[in-house]
């Protein structure tokens, strides 16, 4: 565990008040209202959902940039410790959500092991997902190269490796989307087909959502690099984005080994 670090006793830095946390909370809080209106057949639903999300996203960006500005003006030595610990804890809680979905899947598998997989499940060709796995693992490696390049202060190389990572991530998403479309249209295999379909789409879909988030983080890091942020020691956003990306990668390995290969056996 980290030891408490020295506070600077002479200076008292209190964070600036900010309206953004409230706006973000209210913006995203409106999203479920819109979703409900939509599902229960109200015309305004989609609009309200989109509006809430838009407000939430804009306010998040405003919040992030205010934090970046504020942090740039003070010594944030102890702040970096806190941030990295906080980010790791966040990833633990993310893993726990995946844990719930996997627990469901494993339980069903264990219960139905005699007749596995349940009727209606197509035999999924492993070639495409295997390529996707390879692409995602490669992107994890290139992401690490970007991180190392930044530590060596080679900013151009960092940007190039990051760009490659982002492209590989997009390639993965494309493969995933193609596969979904293929399964849905050729085999009529949907969330409602059977419980394996449910697990398959919810787990891969939830993972895909994390890939999208990871890509957004990488793009954020890339654009901050463009703007001249970070040096070889201070680049928490880079660390955070790369941990997140590795996390997404590890989860995918789990998905591939248990869901894809598991459905076949």
């Amino acid at each position: 565990m980290a030891t408490p670090t020295e506070h600077n006793e002479e200076e008292i830095h209190l964070p600036e008040p900010s309206i953004w946390p409230l706006i973000v909370a209210l913006g995203f809080g409106v999203v479920p209202v819109g979703l409900l209106l939509h599902v229960y057949g109200h015309g305004l639903g989609i609009g309200i959902m989109g509006g809430g999300a838009l407000i939430g996203i804009i306010a998040s960006v405003a919040w992030a940039s205010s934090v970046i500005k504020e942090k740039a003006s003070i010594d944030q030595k102890w702040g970096a410790d806190s941030l990295s610990l906080g980010w790791k804890l966040f990833l633990i809680s993310e893993a726990a959500i995946f844990g719930a979905f996997f627990a469901h899947y494993f339980y069903i598998w264990w219960r139905d092991v005699e007749t596995w997989p349940p009727p209606g499940t197509p035999s999924i060709d492993l070639m495409l997902p295997a390529i996707g796995t390879l692409v995602l693992i490669t992107s994890s490696v290139t992401c690490e190269f970007a991180h190392k390049a930044l530590i060596l202060n080679r900013r151009e190389a960092t940007k190039n490796w990051l760009l490659l990572t982002i492209l590989l991530g997009l390639a993965f998403l494309t493969i995933q989307a193609y596969e979904w479309g293929y399964l849905i249209y050729s085999y009529d295999f949907t969330v409602a087909t059977n419980v394996v379909g449910t697990s398959f789409y919810l787990i891969t879909g939830f993972h895909g959502l994390h890939v999208v988030t990871g890509l957004l983080l990488l793009i954020l890091v890339y654009s901050r690099l463009e703007m001249g942020a970070f040096d070889r020691k201070r680049h928490f956003s880079m660390n955070a984005a790369s941990w997140y990306w590795h996390f997404v990668d590890v989860i995918w390995l789990f998905v591939f080994l248990t869901v894809y290969i598991g459905i076949q056996t």
């Binding site: 726990a96 959500i97 719930a100 469901h104 339980y107 069903i108 969330v191 087909t193």
Partner: peptide, 28 residues
């Protein structure tokens, strides 16, 4: 997060016809 996962499954069962907890689809 596990609670969040559980009620999310309940929600998708309700809204999108998934079969997490529906025995007719093999859920439990």
């Amino acid at each position: 997060p596990v609670l969040a996962g559980a009620v999310t499954m309940l929600l998708t069962d309700r809204m999108f016809g998934t079969g997490f907890f529906n025995p007719a689809q093999g859920g439990d």
